[in-house]
Simulated scan of single mutants.
Amino acid sequence: MTTETNALAALLAEKPFLLADGATGTSLFAMGLEAGEAPELWNETRPENITKLHQDFVDAGADIILTNTFGGTRHRLKLHKAQDRVFDLNRRAAEIARAVADAAPRTVIVAGSVGPTGELLVPLGAMTYEDAVAAFAEQIEGLKAGGADVAWIETMSSPDEIRAAAEAAVTIGLPFVYTGSFDTAGKTMMGLHPKDIHGVAADIGPGPLAVGANCGVGASDILSSLLDMTSADPSATIVVKGNCGIPEYRGAEIHYSGTPPLMAEYARLARDAGARIIGGCCGTSCDHLAAMRRALDAHEPRERPTLETIVEAIGPLRNKSANEGASAPTRERGRRARG
């Protein structure tokens, strides 16, 4: 991990843990975003909603807010005929988040959200590594211009795509964080084991400020991944940003089973298991995040949890753990937007 001076590294040096924000996508759907609509377009058409989202998370106690740019590469935006607006949409998103962060009574980090392109790299698909680097660089250039402190590479499955995004961040001159989504038998869809997350882009530039996991299938599962990551490198700065319980379909809508008390206990367990940056992903509202803030601020460290402790407190795993070695059918990821 790099010790290069920057806002996120400085805040990590100052505080024992940081609280990252909650869900972007599900929060925007609650504000009226339509299925199939690009959240990134709201940076220009409904900036007041994006401002409110960031402000609500800051008010709930977030130390890190993620820009509304998860699908901000040309590959995602071309689905909405906006591939020629990559720089402007990402810059505007970062400017909105920067304004909220700068008005906060404490230091708040603006993390430029960089999600997967949705394309497969050669030889599985048509996108070359060089094309991926160029696409990510185009996005990150906009994020930097808007005032992002760090490139937050998230919900990744492919080690090569993580590396491409990290290389782009270094080229543009932003430090980077990266997280995988361990949603297929405890590994990413491309087979990356949580314990191997540390080495994916450690050799790129000064290396990552933090690595970890986000999204996935549930709070217990991401805590299982966390145990693997912290066992593999206890000195690493680890991020966990888990979903708010389990997604459940009620009619045509997805609801998440996690309550504020459950997410508070998830946060405590994450801290006991060694996470330094703790937040929520899909379904995590401001109420959930506020409960996590209160729980972490009042938390007295306990013994490192076991998987059995986690299951007893949070509920059963939805997938096999990565260490069971069994393969599971690949789950289709139909969500357009993180969170």
Rank of each mutant, 00 (worst) to 15 (best):
M156S: 08
T184C: 14
L89S: 03
D160Q: 14
V239L: 09
S181E: 10
K241F: 04
A9R: 15
N6R: 11
P208C: 13
A210I: 12
S157I: 03
Q55W: 02
T73N: 03
A164P: 07
P123M: 04
A165R: 05
Q139W: 03
H75T: 14
I162A: 13
H299G: 10
A313G: 01
A313M: 00
G280I: 11
R74L: 04
Q83R: 01
M229W: 12
G280W: 12
P234Y: 14
H255V: 08
V177A: 12
A166M: 08
F136G: 01
G207C: 03
V239C: 04
K15N: 09
G205R: 04
D149V: 02
P261I: 06
A201F: 13
M229N: 02
T230N: 04
I172G: 02
A166I: 09
R294T: 10
A111Y: 10
R76C: 06
T107C: 12
T259C: 05
A169R: 06
F57Y: 14
A252T: 15
M292K: 12
D221H: 15
R85C: 02
G339M: 00
E324A: 06
K187T: 07
L79R: 12
A101T: 04
G61Y: 02
A252L: 14
I204S: 08
Y266N: 04
P47N: 11
M190H: 11
L120R: 15
E40I: 13
D233R: 14
V311H: 07
A165M: 05
L89A: 01
I50C: 05
K78Y: 00
F17H: 12
A219H: 08
R335S: 15
E44P: 11
I246Q: 06
G207S: 04
A210V: 09
V170T: 14
G147Q: 06
A328G: 10
G36N: 05
T69K: 01
T2E: 15
V170M: 10
A201Q: 13
F176R: 02
T284Y: 06
T128S: 15
V150Q: 00
L262M: 13
S158L: 10
G251A: 10
Y129W: 03
R76A: 14
A35N: 05
A103F: 10
P47V: 04
V200I: 15
K81R: 14
M190G: 01
S220E: 09
E4L: 05
A126P: 00
A35F: 11
V58E: 14
T117W: 08
